[in-house]
């Protein structure tokens, strides 16, 4: 176990370093952050002065060395656009993103698991078709569109919840529901198919042959086995959201998460901010994957570390 953790830690560090280096190199190929910062009318001298000031005129290797040394100390420098240290800017927004993504995933799970099970218990029945259609709708609907629909239905027409903002659970409802649509669809599909798979297996027939009820067979036997792909997908969806795929919903609902910050950082080629964001996202991905792996071990005794 501890050998496993040490190995995981080693790989995680490697991943974080690799991703950071890649981001550094890629952003340096992309374009010129300084030119994007200055007004279009800024003169050549001002432009050169700014490049010099920000260290962009140094050789890439020097810049990289500087970046590496600081990054190891957890210092990603100041954001180019925002007059503030990059890492705190990202960390400051994490709670909002965690809250939003976590709630969305919980909503998705709470609805998707029963939905998928219902569909799996009576395949090709009317109920199955309704559930499958719901899933398909959830995962194919554009979050932008769904978000605006909800805004116009609830706060604008019915006076319920808020169009935007952050603070109370009422602010959270609409963005979380919007964000839940896709994982809801995908998770309920995987619940359906993996429960169906499991119900088809010999151990289920054997359990039934011992007189277990359908409920006991499903909950006591099949679901535990079906859980692995469900956990995998749920983890993936959660990671996806935490990695910044909340951005559209953040924009629509004015939610102060990291997604918008990251997209701005990319657009503005705000390298320190981007690096800090990538670092934080990589850490999150690593930690969530670790948790998922541990969860696998808890779910399936065949998996040992």
């Amino acid at each position: 176990m501890s050998a496993y953790l040490a190995r995981r830690l080693f790989y995680s560090i490697a991943v974080v370093i690799g991703v950071s280096v890649a981001v550094f190199l890629i952003t340096h190929q992309l374009g010129d952050p300084v030119r994007m910062m200055l007004p279009l009318e800024a003169s050549e001298e001002q432009y050169q002065a700014a490049r010099q000031q920000l260290g962009f005129n140094d050789p890439v290797l020097v810049q990289f060395a500087r970046f590496s040394v600081d990054a190891v100390r957890g210092d990603f420098g100041d954001s180019l656009w925002m007059d503030a240290p990059a890492l705190p800017l990202v960390l400051e927004r994490l709670p909002a993103t965690f809250l939003l993504a976590g709630t969305a995933i919980i909503i998705a799970l709470v609805l998707a698991v029963p939905l998928g099970i219902i569909a799996a218990l009576k395949p090709r029945s009317l109920l199955d078709h309704v559930a499958s259609l719901t899933a398909l709708l959830g995962l194919s609907i554009a979050d932008f569109w769904l978000g605006l629909m909800l805004i116009f239905i609830f706060p604008v027409s019915l006076g319920l919840f808020y169009t935007s903002g952050y603070g109370t659970w009422e602010h959270l409802v609409l963005p979380a529901v919007t964000l839940a649509a896709r994982p809801l669809g995908r998770i309920s599909q995987i619940v359906r198919s993996s429960v169906l798979d499991e119900l088809d297996k010999n151990y289920v027939t054997a359990a039934r042959a011992r007189g277990l009820s359908e409920q006991a067979t499903l909950l006591g036997h099949a679901l535990r086995n079906a859980a692995i792909p469900i956990v995998t997908l749920t983890g993936f969806e959660l990671t996806r959201l935490l990695a910044g795929f909340t951005v559209v919903v953040e924009a629509v609902f004015g939610w102060p998460g990291v997604g918008l910050l990251a997209v701005d950082a990319i657009e503005r080629q705000d390298l320190p901010l981007l690096q800090a964001d990538v670092f934080v996202v990589a850490m999150i991905v690593v930690v969530i994957n670790l948790l998922i792996d541990l969860l696998y071990g808890a779910l399936d005794p065949r998996i040992r570390y």
Binding site: I151, G165, G254
Partner: peptide, 18 residues
């Protein structure tokens, strides 16, 4: 002062009285 990046939401917030 609240940042609302999406134009439609800004309008909706106005309509909803927020």
């Amino acid at each position: 002062i609240r940042p609302i990046p999406e134009e439609s939401t800004r309008l909706a917030a106005l309509q909803a009285g927020e």
